[in-house]
Computed example of a mutant assay.
Amino acid sequence: MSEQLAQKWSKCPNCGKHVHVKQWGTFRRCPFCRMPQRLLVSERLDITFDKGSFEALNFELNPVNKLDFPHYTEKIRRAQDKTGIKDAIVGGKAQIKGIDVAVGIMDNQFMVGTLNTEVGRAIRSIMEYAHDQHLPLILFTASGGARMQEGIFSLLQMNTILHTQKLLRDAGNLTINVLTDPTMGGVSASFAFGSDYVFAEDHAQIGFSGKRVIEQATGEQLPDKFQTAEFLLQHGQLDDVVQREQLRDVLYRMLILHGYGDNFEK
């Protein structure tokens, strides 16, 4: 098979069937098992917000190797070359059916969306921007947790983001988190669940430690769907599980219900 032909086909990680690039569709679902695949930031923007409405904030992100962790600088450069962004988040202002919102999208393609000093600073900046502009905030999480190469500096971001998030809620700004696959570690343990509403995409993996680690630590067999969005909803940890085909409409209705915009569409 030629390289050009191979690029048109990929294997679904869930059912294992080979899928042509055109079969994934706009919402990136396997045509055989309907499992949603992880989205690029550009794809997330396209399916959620009004076309051409996104205006990026300039964070001037500059991740550095504070602890002289071996090969960390090289990993950052490779991730930057792969994704075209400076670190694992993109933020700015966009519109949903004409309603202005502040938005942050964590990028799982950049070192699994891990939280570090610069990503933490960017998230706080997005929240501060929403506060200053009196905008609702929609934050998409996708993270493997805190970035180990920055050690305690990564972990400190959890508390500082939580503090800024609380200030935003106390000011009366609507905050909505959308948990996507995966949302793990320190991100799930802190600000991922700290908004007014917490939604998740179907089949997203959400938790702290991995299932295998928990089973080894506790000696217990966990349910098959443990740490899935559906499992968390069943146990009262989410407000709803929303398919990405419906997410734009759901977010719009939440904005209208909280007084943003002029009309409510049934």
Rank of each mutant, 00 (worst) to 15 (best):
K211Y: 10
D81T: 11
G104C: 06
K22D: 14
E43R: 03
E245G: 02
S143A: 05
Q7V: 00
N173M: 02
F49Y: 14
K75A: 04
I206A: 01
D46S: 10
S209K: 11
C33H: 08
E220M: 07
L255V: 04
S190M: 08
H163E: 07
S190F: 12
D50Y: 06
G104Y: 13
F140N: 13
E3W: 02
M106Y: 14
V112Q: 07
F231A: 00
Q157I: 00
V241H: 06
Q246T: 00
T180Y: 09
L238W: 09
M106I: 11
D262A: 08
G219P: 14
S53I: 00
P182S: 09
L156I: 04
R212K: 10
Q205Y: 13
A94M: 05
Q205H: 12
A146I: 01
H163L: 00
S154V: 03
S195E: 07
M106K: 06
V103R: 08
L5T: 10
L257G: 01
A56T: 05
W9E: 05
F226Y: 15
G84D: 10
G236W: 12
D50V: 01
L135R: 12
D107G: 06
V178H: 05
L167E: 15
E74Y: 04
L222W: 14
D132R: 13
A204R: 11
T83H: 07
K8F: 11
M254C: 08
N177D: 13
M148N: 06
L155Y: 12
I123L: 14
V90D: 01
K22R: 13
K93L: 07
T73Y: 07
M1L: 03
L232G: 02
P36V: 09
I89P: 03
A204N: 11
F110E: 09
H203C: 13
E215N: 06
T83R: 07
N116P: 02
Q37C: 01
Q243N: 06
N263T: 09
E128H: 14
R77C: 01
N108E: 12
G145L: 01
P31Q: 15
E245V: 12
D132Y: 09
I214V: 15
A88I: 01
M158E: 15
D46N: 09
S10F: 12
M254A: 11
V21K: 14
T183H: 06
N108P: 15
A171P: 05
Q237K: 14
S10C: 04
Y72S: 00
V21L: 08
F110C: 06
D262I: 05
M158V: 07
K11V: 12
R169T: 10
F208C: 05
A56V: 01
L251C: 02
L57T: 04
A94V: 00
A88W: 04
